[in-house]
């Protein structure tokens, strides 16, 4: 599904350019779950940005589903983000004036094709059901707990049936118990064939992933499990 080879990213615009990612190699297949752990500033979020096509690598090769997309133009990148990726962030980024269902539907109303209202609603309810909060569809974020809000964000990521789910510290703002529920919801997606790349500081959550990679000063290494 995802093949990164020698990905390098250099942060420019400072007195001295700083290498954030240094020859990263990573391979993730459909249905696999991968945890990326590392200290703050180690380049975890930058790696996720490159994988999610928010950013372009300075060097290296990025192959997604057999296609080289290392230098893909922004218009195509937007289309690929819509068709292949789902994103979950530490902050939930729910729009407070919209209901849970409308927040999830936001990923469907993105200018990449058009779904009739009835079909849109069905897919939204299905996504909310997958994360166990279909009953909160009409609630606004202000009336939901942190865990519920994050699950709405996961439903938003899942509603387009992505092939890759990218989660950047999704449990960072949640207590342990709620965080576990959120990880459950994310792992549920891998059972349906979706690849999961999780950036986390939490060892327990990382341990639940199929593989763990350490990112230290831009260099990615796979941890060998005992």
């Amino acid at each position: 599904m995802i093949e990164l080879t020698g990905i390098t990213k250099v942060l420019k615009g400072q007195s001295e350019p700083r290498t954030i990612l240094d020859g990263v190699d990573l391979s993730v297949a459909a249905g696999q779950s991968v945890a990326i752990v590392g200290r703050s500033g180690s380049g975890k979020s930058t790696l996720l940005s490159v994988i999610g096509l928010f950013d372009r690598p300075d060097q290296g090769r990025y192959v997604l589903a057999g296609q080289d997309i290392s230098r893909v133009p922004e218009r195509r990148a937007a289309k690929l983000r819509s068709s292949h990726f789902g994103f979950v962030f530490q902050r939930f980024f729910l729009l407070k004036h919209l209901t849970a269902a409308q927040n999830v539907a936001m990923a469907l109303v993105n200018g990449q094709g058009w779904l009739p209202r009835r079909e849109r609603r069905a897919r939204v309810m299905q996504a909310l059901d997958q994360v166990g909060i279909a009953h909160l569809a009409k609630n606004r974020p202000a009336k939901m707990s942190g865990g519920e809000q994050q699950r709405v964000a996961i439903a938003r990521a899942l509603v387009r049936n992505p092939q890759v789910l990218l989660a950047d510290e999704p449990t960072g703002a949640l207590d342990t118990e709620t965080g576990t529920l959120v990880i459950d919801a994310l792992l549920g997606a891998t059972e349906r064939g979706c690849a999961l790349i999780l950036v986390t500081h939490d060892r327990d959550h990382a341990a639940r992933m199929g593989r763990i990679h350490d990112l230290v000063d831009g260099v990615l290494t796979e941890r060998v499990r005992a």
């Binding site: 999610g52 928010f54 922004e74 218009r75 937007a78 289309k79 690929l80 983000r81 819509s82 068709s83 990726f85 994103f87 980024f93 729009l95 936001m106 990923a107 993105n110 200018g111 990449q112 938003r156 387009r160």
Partner: peptide, 13 residues
């Protein structure tokens, strides 16, 4: 943040 998020979910510029 809203616009950045919309771009993240595939909304073109």
């Amino acid at each position: 943040e809203e616009f950045a998020l919309r771009r993240a979910v595939g909304t073109p510029r």
